[in-house]
Nucleic acid binder design. Sequence first.
DNA 1: CGGCATACG
DNA 2: CGTAT
DNA 3: GCCG
Length: 625
Amino acid sequence: MKRKAASPRKTAAPFSSCFADTEVLILEDGGISPHDISPMRAGLLLKKIEQHGGTAEVIPANEVLEGRLRAREQRDSKLSRATHVVLSKSLEGKVPALVERLRREKNKDTNENGTIYAPLPLTVGRSCQVVSPDWVSDCLLHRQLVDPRPYLLSLDRAERNEGGDAYTEAATKREEAAEPTAGGTKKARLSHPSASTPTVVSPTHAAIEARLAPFSDLDPTTRDAFFAYGGPLVLSKPFSASFPKFACQRPAPAQHPNRHLTPLFEDLVEMYGLGVGDKERETAFGRVLAVLRAWPWKVRESKELKGIRHVGGSMRAVIEEILMTGRCSRLEKLREDSSHRCLLDLCRVHQVGHATARKWYEAGYRSVAQIQADLKRAEETGDGEEQAGGEVERYLGSTFCTSQRPSMEQLLGILFVDEYSVKMTRCQVAALEGIVREAALKALAARGLGAETLLLQTCGGYLRGKALNGDADVLVSCTQAQGQAGLREEIKRIMQEDMGIDLLILKEGNTMGGFASKPTHEKIASHDNMLTLIKHEGFYRRLDVISPPPDQWAFCVLGWSGSKQMEKDLRDYADEQGLHLSQQAVFRETKRLTNPKSIDGVFHSEEDVWEFLGLKYLPPRLRCA
DNA sequence: CGGCATACG
DNA sequence: CGTAT
DNA sequence: GCCG
């Protein structure tokens, strides 16, 4: 609440001008090992340099190395003008060799095409220094330009003689550059910042955007998310070392750059959960899926993910295979097994999970369609309407033994199996929200409470911005506790009786503010909720209405907003902090202790909860992990 | 080698 | 064991 | 399957 989202930096001027009069070229190499400069790291370096009064530019090393840049003069002039070139240690001394190799390849190409590629010049300006990224970090640390000498790298140490004129020229210039720095020039520059150069111009978002434009495969949403988020990224470390342990510490937008990987991982999660029935494997793949959804650029080699929590050897092997072939043999092998296919099909029925599906499978059922057909046949054999039910009953009794007979809810699930799979657009979800709102307002008005006391929020995938939703999760409460008591029940009545809405109630929670006792926890009022099928625009839609007491509002919204992995990781994270998080409250002490106390204090909004947990707030749309 | 999120019907 | 996130 |  006290937090002001993201713009305190414009008013204050918290940045030094330690990079004043420096023009830095950063060679981004796309790598991820400790000595590489990943696009994200390059972006951070650039941002920091600009924030501290310098100018900087990121050049994808590939462009230099592969000679992809046509505008050779432009590149050259940039290199000559720069005061510093930031180069990863892993590329030290290798640049000319790579350039040379690529030049030869290009020339081979060009002989066929008839075009001639000139060798790329790698001349750096007279007083330009080639340094490792640590130099930037340390300048920031000390708030001044530090002596670059300990950080100097060579572009060409390895192959000085071999290359053409351009390389030796570069080498000479670099040495020329190194010499005077030891003397006067450097001193002048090093003493520079504090003295002159007053105003620090913080670069606009658009400016940063423009500078980062070359990274076409770095999804803009993700990039924005990371820059806006800031988070635990540490400039002096490579990105993989800063990648947070928990999903709740990393922004994950719906449109992420690794959609060449995630669909297959989604299938693996489903297959292990419902098909194979191995929930440990399911969680393992689910965690990697969450990593991929938060990884800010396109993964090109599985080793980029080395060292990331939950991504071990076999996970990287799966990723590598998908990257190489676009397929996952492991998944395909599982899909070949017809029993897995049948189980997945049977699990489409509401109230049927892996265990029930397996029972039905063992009873001889191979698909939902088969059950539907059998039910229909049983219905037809009976004559009158009354008999029909009896036939179905008899049929069910004869084919399913008592323990595995479908419940009423499962029967509904079998009948509505296709309807269940139809997704809603955001408009349609909003329409359902409108219906609940109307009913809620009527209910409150009947108690003499105005619209301003209504708390209403549709959560779930809708709140996270999903375009298509399987259901609508509408949370309803009232700022006045007496307005909330029994509200959900009243909403149901109004929808059915006053508004004439066709509602099939699948499940109803304890009504009228009953108290749920957990053995390990303090008693607190439980949510009043219902799961229904609501007829809307000709379809039965799944509608969840949840009504928590007002003091639980923030926790409830957080708990119903997802994603599932976010919720899991929020709880894991809370545990690590010695806290316990639920949809009702936060608790001190671990869950094992018999008498944990509810935290004192008021949590009005989701932000309050994130802040209390010591987490940087992630808006719902960045919780798509 | 145990644990893997949590609560509720 | 099922549902919800 | 991975982590502590």
